Simulated assay, not measured.
Amino acid sequence: MTPRDRLLGLTVIVLWGLNFLAIRVGLDHFPPFFFAALRFLIIAIPVVIFVPRPQVPLRWLLLYGFGFGFGQFVFLFWAMHSGMPTGLASLVLQSSAPFTVLLGAFLLREKLSVWQVSGIAVAVVGMSLIGWDRSHHAALLPVILTLLGGLSWAFGNLGSRLAAANTVGEPAPMRLMLWMCVIPPLPMLALSAVVEGPTAGWHALGTAFSADAWPSLVGLAYIILLGTIAGSGLWTMLMGRYPAGMVAPLSLLVPVVGIGASGLFLHEDPSPLSLVGAVIVIAGASAAQMRRKPANTVFSDTPAASPPARLGV
Rank of each mutant, 00 (worst) to 15 (best):
P31K: 08
R59Q: 11
M290K: 14
V298K: 02
V51D: 02
T297M: 14
G263T: 09
V218I: 15
L191W: 05
A193C: 09
N157Q: 01
S82F: 05
S286F: 10
V92Q: 01
V313N: 14
A123G: 06
P173F: 02
S216T: 12
H267R: 13
C181L: 02
V276C: 12
G231L: 11
I49E: 01
R134A: 13
S128L: 15
K293I: 14
V276M: 12
K293T: 09
G67Q: 07
F68I: 03
P307R: 14
L112Y: 07
V182C: 05
L275G: 07
L38D: 03
D212M: 12
K111A: 15
S306R: 08
A97I: 02
M80W: 05
W202K: 06
P46E: 05
R175E: 09
G119W: 04
T199Q: 07
P32G: 07
G240Y: 09
F66H: 07
T100H: 01
H29A: 06
G233I: 03
S216C: 09
S251G: 11
F299K: 01
M174W: 12
L63D: 02
A89S: 09
L103P: 00
W202R: 13
P57K: 03
L21N: 00
A123F: 06
G263L: 08
I223L: 15
V195D: 12
P171V: 12
E268T: 03
G201V: 13
M188Q: 10
T2G: 10
G284H: 03
F70E: 04
A211G: 02
K293W: 13
L176E: 04
P303E: 15
T86W: 10
R24D: 13
P307V: 15
A288K: 01
A79D: 06
A200V: 15
P171C: 09
P184C: 09
P215G: 06
G150C: 05
L238W: 04
Q72R: 07
H203V: 15
V56A: 07
T11C: 09
P272A: 08
V114T: 13
P294I: 10
R175Y: 10
I45P: 00
T199F: 13
N19L: 08
A295S: 11
I42V: 12
L93Y: 09
A287S: 11
F35V: 14
L76Q: 09
F299T: 06
S232P: 03
L225H: 06
F77K: 00
L273M: 15
T297F: 03
I45V: 14
M290Y: 09
L178C: 06
Y242E: 01
R24H: 11
F77A: 02
S95P: 00
G169T: 10
G26F: 01
L8W: 15
S82H: 11
V218H: 07
